[in-house]
Design a protein around this nucleic acid. Structure first.
Lengths: 148, 148
DNA sequence: TCAATTTATATGCATATGCATAGAAACCAA
DNA sequence: TTGGTTTCTATGCATATGCATATAAATTGA
């Protein structure tokens, strides 16, 4: 094997540590405010943005990088809370459409101020505009998909 | 609230997505090779590096950002597999020392070539040395702890 | 010196995730 | 057409995680 260089190992370690640390801080803030986790927020936001406030589970999966079986059950819970509802997909009985409810919209809208403030506090404010741009550019490279 | 800027929101989304994507790719590679998860590797490596191949659970926790109760149970599993053993901490009966076993060392050593190669493949090779350094520097800022 | 507090680890119970696979509908190839 | 394959979603079962709290030992301070 070709050993990863010290610089690469350091950057790799920091990527994991920074992501987890910031996510943990932000999640803690949401919880303090009595809100559900980021996964719920992400699903609400994606569905809300879909045409007519609707998206198929597959599309949500893609958007939020959730495993199919996990999303299936997350949607169960969210549906039980009245945040989304599942409706038939016209013309394909295998699929369904997940539709955000008024309650779901309201929750997303209430969460955003808290979430947005936390993003600034624990992320944006530590970087600033210019560096946020640099970070985006670097991270984008990691998302290239040669070699899966 | 002060809305996060578009640049900040984009960078934030990418941080989450990039971290998860790369971790998932690397974890998949480890699994393919028949190895346990990165958490196990991290614990093995930290303990191995400790003085005499030993570390207290608290120290491990700190090093790998694991919750106390999760680490406690992870150590149960690792001990059951013979990878570490728990021994008394001299002079403080509340604490313990986690000691890596020969088996544990062997596993860590066998995992590293696979893990290291995966780090290069899914991370280092997409960046290069210079950019890895830039990324490290940016991520370090996120780890500053004002406003925990 | 001992009651109150703090520190270190473990655990019961609920929830969430991973893995394998099921079931049903759509698609495709001959 | 139709049998095999693929696509989409759900689910039983095992494992892992989160939350609250327990237990026990050490430390502190009056």
């Amino acid at each position: 094997m070709q050993e990863p260089s010290a610089a690469v190992i350091r950057a790799w370690g920091r990527l994991i540590r920074a992501e987890r640390t910031v996510v943990a801080r932000i999640e803690a803030e949401l919880k303090r405010a009595g809100f559900p986790s980021l996964h719920w927020y992400d699903v609400l936001l994606e569905v809300k943005r879909g045409p007519g406030g609707r998206l198929t589970p597959r599309e949500i999966e893609e958007a939020v990088l959730f495993e199919q079986y996990n999303l299936s059950r997350l949607l169960d819970r969210m549906e039980a809370e009245g945040l989304v509802r599942r409706i038939p997909f016209p013309g394909d009985k295998r699929r369904q459409l997940v539709e955000i409810t008024d309650e779901g919209r309201a929750l997303q809208e209430h969460m955003w101020p808290v979430y947005g403030a936390a993003i600034n506090r624990y992320f944006g404010d530590k970087l600033g505009e210019k560096e946020a741009g640099q970070l985006s550019a670097l991270l984008l490279k990691l998302l290239q998909s040669e070699n899966t």
